[in-house]
Nucleic acid binder design. Structure first.
Length: 366
DNA sequence: AACCCGTGGTT
DNA sequence: TAACCAAGGGT
């Protein structure tokens, strides 16, 4: 959709004016809108990926409090960064941000780069985030196309391409390049997203309150709830896990650091295995696998609870057992023996925070 | 391109 | 309640 096709249906100048006037009057007062510090804009944009504003606010405030600058974050230990991210999900965002901030410190003298080419090389900064930081922090007229923008513009411009397809984003980027205000790219991009969050919502948009409904083709044609077109996602797969809370002779409990790649990378958990359908019981499988995986000789006790945890793409059905640690072949960096007072610094995913509630700490408290 | 990667709120 | 949704990126 090029400039001529768009200007045929829309008075672009009037559209910008209506959108910006609405944003200046109605924008929410958010912590990352206090200033245009590129570092804070960056942190907020990473946290806001696939995550609601209300969820991000407390995390953002604590994170900036703890790591107020590029300098501070670049000197932090990864374990501390993951702990600050604990519960937010998509933990590779935290590890990528940490790594990219170190790179900005070393390679760019601590100054976030202000060109699309340079900023896009940073880990975790894709097309959306690059455009968001450049426009919001530096006033560069780059598109920042997220789910909101695709929903809003699919309605305004009556675009029926499937927004689930990766290449569709380019269509919207071209549209934004035509529409964007060069006087205020920051407010223009934020206004499109704010409109998507507050007015032009997915299921029941508040068209009667919309500042740009006069420009909206979908509103004119009554197709606003048919747009955007988005094909279905496939449903999650289910996995059966057995977790064991192993207690040693001193009454300490064993925790394990997950691998540095894949699901919940570098987070801590209780020893666990995937249960497969065989003749062997769960307890037998646990006993064997604890030896194979951890070099741990164990006696499995009772099933103490069952927990379900839903991820975006899979479901864990977890059976939680108690157990005794009889012998550990070797002490390992990836294995730690902890008691209740020592557990706090370790970052756990929410799935294991649920399990944490069932650890029988009281059994060996003095 | 298709799949992996979390979590919590809404419908 | 199952499905959907939210300021996406990496592989």
């Amino acid at each position: 959709m090029n400039h001529d096709e768009i200007s045929k249906n829309i008075d672009i100048k009037q559209f910008r004016e209506d959108l910006l006037n609405w944003f200046m009057a109605e924008q929410r007062n958010l912590p990352w809108r206090q200033d245009q510090d590129p570092y804070k804009v960056w942190v907020s944009e990473i946290m806001l990926q696939q995550t609601k504003v209300d969820t991000v606010i407390p995390y953002f405030n604590r994170f900036i409090d703890q790591f107020p600058s590029i300098e501070a974050l670049s000197e932090a230990e990864e374990e501390k960064v993951l702990k600050a991210w604990e519960g937010l999900g998509y933990y590779s965002r935290a590890r990528n941000l940490h790594s990219a901030v170190k790179e900005v410190k070393e390679k760019y003298g601590g100054v976030v780069p202000n060109t699309p080419e340079e900023i896009s090389t940073l880990r975790g900064v894709g097309p959306y985030t690059a455009g968001a930081i450049l426009s919001i922090a530096y006033g560069v007229p780059e598109p920042a196309v997220d789910g909101n923008v695709m929903r809003v513009l699919s309605r305004i411009l009556s675009i029926w391409d499937d927004i689930a397809k990766p290449k569709t984003r380019k269509i919207f980027e071209e549209a934004v390049r035509t529409l964007i205000s060069h006087d205020n790219p920051s407010y223009f991009n934020q206004a499109l997203m704010e409109l998507g969050a507050l007015i032009c919502t997915p299921t029941s948009p508040s068209c009667l309150l919309c500042p740009v409904r006069d420009h909206c083709q979908a509103f004119h044609e009554g197709t606003q709830t048919d747009l955007p077109v988005k094909t279905k996602t496939k449903k999650q797969k289910s996995l059966n896990l057995a977790v064991v809370i192993l207690t040693d002779q001193e009454g300490k409990t064993l925790i394990h650091k997950r691998p540095s790649e894949g699901l919940l990378a570098n987070l801590w958990e209780f020893p666990n295995i995937e249960i497969v359908q065989t003749i062997k019981s769960e307890k037998e499988q646990l006993t064997e696998q604890m030896l194979t995986l951890y070099g741990a000789t164990v006696e499995i006790g009772n099933l103490i609870t069952r927990i379900e945890h839903v991820f975006s793409h899979l479901i864990w059905n977890i059976n939680v057992y108690t157990g005794k640690l009889v012998e550990l072949e070797e002490e390992n960096i990836m294995l730690k023996r902890v008691n209740e007072t020592e557990i706090e610094p370790y970052p756990f995913p929410v799935s294991h925070q649920k399990i944490l509630k069932f650890v029988p700490w009281s059994k060996y408290r003095d």
